Measured scan of single mutants.
Amino acid sequence: NQASVVANQLIPINTALTLVMMRSEVVTPVGIPAEDIPRLVSMQVSRAVPLGTTLMPDMVKGYA
């Protein structure tokens, strides 16, 4: 089972991601792979992401 990136806190719209905002977790459906966490740092979210939400490619500007 592949771990995905999950929000560790509420991430407001247009916030630049930092390591403390993200954790890896095995979830369904699968989201952005956990190994991409270093690449996500400083990228902005395109919408508010609630705590515990799996990050999907369309939620991060410039990821897809």
Rank of each mutant, 00 (worst) to 15 (best):
D36C: 06
V30S: 14
T53M: 14
I13W: 10
S24P: 09
A48D: 14
P12Y: 07
K61Q: 11
S24C: 06
T53H: 14
V60C: 02
M21S: 04
N1T: 15
A3C: 10
A34I: 09
Y63D: 03
M21C: 03
M22W: 02
I32K: 00
I11S: 01
A48C: 10
I37P: 00
L19A: 08
G31M: 03
Q44A: 08
A64D: 13
G62W: 07
M43Y: 13
L55Y: 02
T18P: 00
A64T: 14
P57K: 07
V41N: 04
P38K: 13
Q9A: 14
V26N: 11
V20H: 11
T15E: 07
D58H: 06
P29I: 06
P50V: 05
A16V: 09
V26P: 07
L55K: 01
I13G: 12
L40T: 00
V6R: 04
V6P: 01
V5Y: 01
L17T: 00
M56N: 07
I11K: 00
L55S: 00
L10W: 09
A7N: 01
P12L: 08
V20R: 12
M59D: 15
I11G: 01
Y63Q: 03
E35I: 08
P38Y: 10
T18S: 08
S4E: 00
A7H: 02
D58P: 08
L10Q: 08
L19R: 10
S46N: 13
P33R: 10
N1W: 13
G31A: 03
L40H: 01
Y63P: 04
L55E: 02
I11A: 00
L40F: 02
G62R: 07
I13Q: 11
T28H: 06
P29L: 07
P33L: 10
T15M: 09
K61M: 13
M43V: 04
L55M: 13
I11N: 01
R23I: 05
A64F: 05
I37M: 12
G31K: 00
V30H: 10
S42D: 06
V60N: 01
S42R: 08
N8Q: 11
L40C: 04
V49N: 02
I32V: 07
P12M: 07
V49L: 10
